[in-house]
């Protein structure tokens, strides 16, 4: 039973990286890809219909943590306290920028929120990188908070660079699929420019982790570096696909790469996770209803992606 919940947690967090990765990446690139207010609004409209449905994956991660992994929740949220608090604030600011930027016609108002959106999205990507870096170093003991070195040291910062680049590339590929003409071309060029550096950074981070950070146990080092190598390969292949104008394939590959850090963290912490679950009786009581709700949630999401699959054009509804 525990395994089911670990898998669910991994799927939700990995899924979150993939889908909110579109929004984070678009936010990072907003002012580079969008020339002028009109184009920036198009970019935000490209993510618009999905925005709420994407970030709710992370809300679900929080729910599953508190319902099925109360002790892990403590060690993550308490152990990484300063990072988590900063990440929440950044998340709030990112959302505020999305919600408020188009609520006034003034160009200055919109440009101001756009700047905030770029800053907050970049910081949010970096935050996720630092969480991954800190978690790969191991969760702090219960009741303690990780030190500044673990949270903001070179390894965490290296991961921050990886995820900023990775989310940006992932977002750019998404935008190729959602936009037309000129803007799609620009997004494709941007993706092509980011994918190989992202692969290189990922290899560097995984390699540095294997040498300096991960515990010296084959059962940890092998799977983590294996996943890292596959992800770097996927990014390389995504680059080829983008250049060959096959963006559906590129999107699948970049999604796999974006989700890979979650898998690495789970593999690193595999030994600790089952200790942190709620007791079997609770999980049994909780399980039926929670698992029954999942197909419903999945169906809602599938419907959303289908209903708004057409690229943005003149008739698309705008809101954010």
């Amino acid at each position: 039973m525990d395994v089911v919940w670990v898998v669910l947690l991994g799927l939700l967090l990995g899924g979150y990286f993939v889908v909110d990765g579109f929004d984070i990446g678009t936010g990072v690139l907003l002012r580079r890809l969008g020339r002028g207010e009109g184009e920036r609004r198009m970019l935000i409209t490209a993510i618009g219909p999905f925005f709420l449905g994407n970030e709710v994956w992370l809300v679900a991660v929080g729910g599953v943590l508190s319902g099925a992994f109360p002790l892990v929740e403590d060690r993550v949220l308490g152990g990484l306290y300063p990072l988590v608090a900063a990440g929440l604030l950044i998340w709030v600011l990112r959302d505020a920028a999305v919600w408020f930027r188009s609520r006034q016609p003034s160009l200055r108002w919109r440009a101001g929120w756009d700047r905030l959106l770029v800053a907050a999205s970049t910081a949010f990507a970096a935050f996720w990188g630092m969480v991954v870096g800190a978690a790969l170093a191991g969760l702090p003991e219960p009741g303690t908070t990780a030190g500044a070195w673990q949270l903001t040291g070179p390894y965490a910062l290296l991961w921050a660079a990886v995820l900023v680049t990775l989310f940006a590339a992932h977002g750019a590929i998404f935008l190729v699929a959602r936009l037309r003409d000129d803007m799609a071309t620009r997004a494709r060029e941007r993706a092509a420019r980011l994918l190989r550096p992202a692969a290189a950074l990922l290899v560097l981070a995984v390699g540095a982790g294997a040498v300096f950070v991960l515990p010296r146990e084959w059962s940890v080092v092998l799977p983590v570096t294996g996943v890292g190598a596959l992800a770097a390969g996927a990014l390389w292949a995504a680059d080829t696909a983008v250049r060959a104008d096959r963006h559906a394939r590129a999107l699948v590959l970049s999604s796999a790469a974006v989700a890979s850090p979650v898998l690495m963290v789970l593999l690193r912490l595999a030994a600790q996770l089952p200790e942190g679950t709620a007791d079997a009786e609770t999980l049994r009581t909780l399980g039926g209803l929670a698992l029954a709700a999942l197909p419903l949630a999945a169906a809602a999401q599938a419907w959303m992606w289908r209903a708004f699959r057409r690229p943005v054009d003149a008739g698309t509804v705008v809101f954010f």
Partner: peptide, 14 residues
């Protein structure tokens, strides 16, 4: 935690 988990999975997602 159980009702919080159910809230997010059963309600918020939708």
């Amino acid at each position: 935690g159980a009702p919080l988990a159910l809230e997010t999975l059963v309600a918020f997602f939708v």
